[in-house]
Structure formats: structure tokens, C-alpha cells
Nucleic acid binder design. Structure first.
Lengths: 364, 364
DNA sequence: CTGAAAGCGCTTACAG
DNA sequence: CTGAAAGCGCTTACAG
């Protein structure tokens, strides 16, 4: 006489795990192995992998237990082929600062850490006319899951349109609202610059210069604008004679500062649009035989590592680049999950006061 | 009456290209499209893609013409699935210098530029015990084409053994001969350090200090060794009382220099094991109210961008990091092509003389 | 030198 | 809630 035995859930689960354990030695498992051991179809395993709700909780639990026991991970190449979409997240950048790039990479990697996504690097040169074409080819061939765009590539509207046309998700990091909230990380550069202005005004400076970045960078406008507004709110004005354009480079900062030092009335403080230019300004001041901050106070922007390594250490405005990268990658995942975001994610830089700023000589 | 027309090769080729041109609008081509238009099997197209010699030159030419006309590129995901090997090259690094990392990335990207390979980033922490396990999982799941290992991960023999066991190609970049020539990029750090020693001796320094890197870094030994040997060849010796250990960081350089400044007899020149520590040494000298190079000459190692931005600009030893990255990636491709290399590829650093070194005060 | 069949490890409609 | 069949775009033996 046969007797129908209806095993309870715990028994069933234990049996499945045991069957899985026996399989262990046979090398890397596939979806078929999981299905066979779980006694379900591979489609059901696929549903579990993809978190489909259409699986009985009990079935799901058994499948998950076997997956855990075998340390199974689905093959990204096979999934990509079937999904027509790879598990690569591309960082498309033209930012010249290695520090910026590395920090952004770190942030993105933080967010991708426990996922199946890999970060691939796509440096570009915006002065190369072929760069959108190359990117299109990359996209069509590698079908990246999504792209992250820091400044200044993030400011290229035509490029983003191409991404949309090719059905590729992206997140733009920029100092202006260039896209819908779900595709943007906003940085309030103008507010950071305003903090620099307030700091210098509070120290008593009246005669303040600004070395701004190139007109082609949105951040240069934002920073100049915020600085100017805050000066005006404090009853000062940004003297056009003390406003010089640089190229965000060390050399341009050095040259701009040299010009400022020979102005009719030498400024007692200078706000440089980034740390690179501030570093150049240091050298110009030194070469002129002047002292920082005794003769001239200097403020930078970015808080790159060089800021703390200069002597005296540079007062500057810090943008949390790593956190921004993390947020951008998280937003990309959110976007893929179909979340509709209404509010933009934004970051406000903060001034870091070190040793390069002090009250002007007359007021010391 | 039908007449057999045997078209010549040129006609045949032109016809194929025309057929391809007609196809153009239908979206992205696959290997099947190419095969159909070329009137061959897809296996033959696959042979052409993979540069198999087993294809009649004429057939190959026609297939290549159609591929070019359609701008066809094989799907990397599909190839990866069939080949059980992806087109990803992993950069596995724990190097703390952003400048080093970014330059290495650039070099690798240079070499991968016109290939189908993508660079993926795998930062690791050697102090994390789980890091080999995580890497193994990455390897087994993503089946990277190969890995590039700069110092100090490159010095981990057990890790490389795991790579071999998992049948993954790799290239180690190190200052010692740790592996066979086909898997190594060698840097002659000791020779660079020797150049620093010769430079200081030539200037007339007798009383020379050295701030070396941490014992756990092979480069620290190589640099100290090369420096010491060259000093001895010049009839000097490395005074143990003027040899201090730092941690390759700014702060450690500052502290080490402070100790040296209070030595019984202050050194007239200091060789720092890297630019970071040299930068710290600058600050210590400044804080002590001394001048560079008038009171103390300083030499760094690496030639990171900060070297040229300091005041006075830092004399340092430059390693061509970007070229090293390029060579490493090229070597990986060579390895995959089955080339057996007998001679190791090596790079010798060179001193870059700037403004931080001069004859000692007494001899000016 | 060339091709038809099978397979890499997944997912997508479709049917139940 | 579950499964059998077909397909993603390639390559690998195998046969000729």
C-alpha cells in the first residue's frame, strides 16, 4: 500500500537545500540547474531572479534558498543578449580634473557595489567633432544600461537628444536645470560662490577681484553670478576692472593674477573660479614678493586635494563630488525601475575656511 | 537562349555593396544579414570577423566590403556568451593617488581605443580580507577578457595564482620581476632614485636625507635602494640618522621633514619617496621659516601635476604612467593572441629638474 | 575553403 | 501562479 505523503514546507525547503548541496562540486550552476533542483521550470527561476510578483511565495522561497546555497548568479552576458541591454553603466566625461573624475568614479562605484552593474569609462573630447558619432556607436553596439554625464558633457543638449532617440537612460550633473528632475543632479554653484563673497565681506574686504572660468562652461557663469549677487547684497559691487577671465587652468590663473596685481588699485582679495586657477594665483603673488593672506587673500572653488597641501592652505568652496556620483548612479537605477521623480536632487557647496584668507592689512 | 555570365571580381564586389546599400534602412544589421547579402553562411562571416585564415581571399573581400557598407559590428554580448569570455578589461587597483589612477586609465583607454574592449573599474582595498573573494566572484560572473594590476595589488602573488586557476589573463605592473615576461610591465624605480642621488651630488650636497615610503610597498624599497647605491658610488653614504619612514602621504611627509629639520645637523637636501611627501616637506620647511631651495633642496618622485604647481616648482622623478598603462593593455592583447614574449617590457623613470634644487648655501 | 546543426544562458510572448 | 517553445546573435565542433 502506498501512502501519500504531503511534506510540510520546512521539510521541502530542507530537501531542496540538500539537493543543492549535493550539486555543489559540479562547477558553476546555470538557471537550468536551479530549475532542475527546485523542480520548477527555468522560467519560474527567471521570475524569481527578476523579482516578478507572479510567483507563489513558497516557490520563491525554495528557489531563493537553492540560489543562495549554490552561490548562483545569472550570467550577465546571457541576460544582456536576451534583454538587448547590457549591465554596463557608462561614465562619459570630458572633465580635465583627475581629482574630479576619480571622486565621481568612486561615488558611482559606491552605488553600484552590490548590484550586477559594471562601470565603464568613456572619456570624450568635446572639441572632437566625431565624439557624438563615437558615442552613438558605443551605445548601439554595447547597449549600456545607462550613462552618467558630469559637466561639461552634461551641458550638451544635442547629445542627450541622441541618447533619448536611442532609448538609453542617462543622468546629467549640472549647475543649471537642463532636463527633467528624473534625469538631473543639480549643483547650486552660485550659492557656493555667494558663500565665498560673504566670507570675504565679513573679513572686511572692499576691493575684491574675481578670476572666472571660461564662458563655455556653465559653472563659470553660475559662480560669477552668485558671487556678484552676494557682493551686491553686502553693499559692494563686482568691479569690471577686477573681473578677469581664465581657462580653469593653472597657467591662466597665474596670468590673470599677474594682471590683477598691476591694476591701478591692487585688490586685497581674489575669488578664483576653481582651485587650479587659485594655485596659479598663489605663484603670481609669490613671484611678486607678496604674502598670502597678509597682502592678498585668495579663495578657490572645488576643494581638490591640492587645496590642503598648499602653504598657506587654501580657503575654498567644496562640492561633494563623490556623493554626487553616488546620487547620479542611484538615480539611474531608480529611473530604470520606472520611478517618476518630481523633485530634483540637488547639492549645495560649502565654504571651507583655511589659511589663505584674513582681514585686509589696513584692518588687521 | 540563356548565356552563362561569369562576372569578374570587381563586378561581383560592386553588386554586393549595392545590395548592402539597399539594406541600409532596415536598422542594425546582424551576422545573418551580412551572410544573406554576401550569399555565404554566417559561419563564413564569423570566420571573417575573427580573422580566420580559412577563407578564400575573394570571399573575405566581399564580406568585408558589405560589413563596411553597413557599418556592421558584431554584438559583444552574443560573442561573449558563445565564447564564454567577455570583452571587458578590468583595472584592479588600490593605488591611493588619483593622478596615478587617472593616468593609468588614460593609457589603457588609448590602447583599447580602436578595439571592441571596454575598460571596467575594480577598485579594491587590500586591507579588506574579502577582496580576493569579491574579485573571484567578479571573474566567474563577468568572465573578463583580462585584468591589469598596478602596484600594490600587482605584488599579491596569491591573487595572481587565483587568476591563473580561473584561467583569466592579467598583466602586473611592478618595480620587481614578479612573474614571466608576458605578464609583467617592469619599472626601474631604483634607477630613477639613482638619478635623484646623482643630481643632488652634482650640485655639491654632502648632507642628504631620505624620506622613504612604507615598508609594505615594494617601490619604497626599490627607491631607497637605488638612492643609496648611487650615493655610495659618488662617495657619499646614506646616513641612517637622516633616513625616515613616511606613509606616502602628505601628512607623513610633513612630520618626517619636521623631524629632519631638528636633526643635530640639518640636511641641505632631501629626497622624498613620492611627490605627496615632498609636498608635505615643503610645508614643514615653510613653517620653520626656511627657504626652498636656498636652505633646503627637495626632490620628489612621480611627477604628479602638483609638482609643477608648487612654488618653487618641484624637481622630481617622472614615471611615464600613461605609457605604462598603454603598454600593459597592449601586452594583454598580445597575450590573448598567443604571442610568447621572452623579453620583459620595462620603463625607466627620468629626473625632471625644476626649481626646488640648488647648490647648498655654502657653495652657492 | 565552406555550411547545417547545436549550443552558450538567459527572457519574451503565448497558452493554460 | 506555471511551463514548453522560440529566440537574442554569436561560435564551436563536425562533416564535407
Amino acid at each position: 500500500m502506498t501512502q501519500e505523503i504531503k511534506p510540510d514546507h520546512a521539510t521541502e525547503l530542507a530537501a531542496a537545500v540538500e539537493a543543492a548541496a549535493e550539486f555543489r562540486q559540479h562547477g558553476r550552476a546555470t538557471i537550468n540547474d536551479i530549475a532542475r533542483i527546485a523542480k520548477v521550470s527555468k522560467k519560474t527561476v527567471s521570475r524569481v531572479i527578476n523579482d516578478s510578483p507572479l510567483v507563489k511565495p513558497r516557490t520563491r522561497e525554495i528557489v531563493k534558498a537553492i540560489i543562495a546555497e549554490l552561490g548562483y548568479a545569472p550570467d550577465p552576458q546571457a541576460r544582456a543578449l536576451a534583454l538587448r541591454r547590457s549591465f554596463l553603466v557608462g561614465l562619459v566625461y570630458d572633465n580635465p580634473s583627475p581629482q574630479y573624475v576619480v571622486n565621481m568614479q568612486r561615488g558611482i562605484l559606491d552605488a553600484l557595489e552590490e548590484t550586477d552593474f559594471q562601470l565603464v569609462l568613456r572619456p570624450v573630447s568635446r572639441t572632437d567633432d566625431h565624439y557624438p558619432g563615437r558615442l552613438r556607436q558605443f551605445i548601439q553596439q554595447h547597449k549600456p544600461f545607462g550613462l552618467i554625464l558630469p559637466p561639461s558633457v552634461s551641458e550638451d543638449d544635442a547629445l542627450c537628444e541622441m541618447f533619448r532617440a536611442n532609448d538609453v537612460d542617462y543622468v546629467r550633473i549640472a549647475s543649471g536645470m537642463l532636463d527633467e528632475p528624473g534625469r538631473m543632479i543639480l549643483t547650486h554653484d552660485s550659492e557656493g560662490a555667494a558663500q565665498a563673497a560673504r566670507h570675504l565681506c565679513a573679513l572686511g574686504h572692499e576691493h575684491i577681484a574675481h578670476i572666472h572660468g571660461p564662458e563655455s562652461f556653465r559653472s563659470a557663469h553660475e559662480r560669477r553670478g552668485g558671487f556678484q549677487r552676494a557682493l551686491e547684497e553686502a553693499g559692494r559691487a563686482l568691479d569690471p576692472g577686477l573681473t578677469v577671465e581664465g581657462g580653469y587652468t593653472f597657467d591662466s590663473g597665474l596670468q590673470a593674477m599677474e594682471r590683477l596685481l598691476y591694476a591701478k588699485r591692487r585688490p586685497t582679495a581674489v575669488f578664483a573660479g576653481n582651485d587650479e586657477m587659485a594655485t596659479g594665483a598663489y605663484v603670481a603673488v609669490r613671484k611678486a614678493g607678496l604674502r598670502i593672506p597678509d597682502d592678498v587673500s585668495i579663495v578657490g572653488f572645488d576643494d581638490t586635494p591640492i587645496a590642503g597641501r598648499l602653504w598657506p592652505a587654501l580657503t575654498t568652496v567644496r562640492l561633494p563630488i563623490r556623493e554626487m556620483g553616488r546620487a547620479a548612479a542611484a538615480l539611474l537605477l531608480e529611473q530604470a525601475a520606472g520611478v517618476e521623480r518630481e523633485e530634483v536632487i540637488s547639492f549645495t557647496p560649502e565654504i571651507v575656511v583655511r589659511e589663505s584668507t584674513a582681514a585686509p592689512a589696513g584692518r588687521a
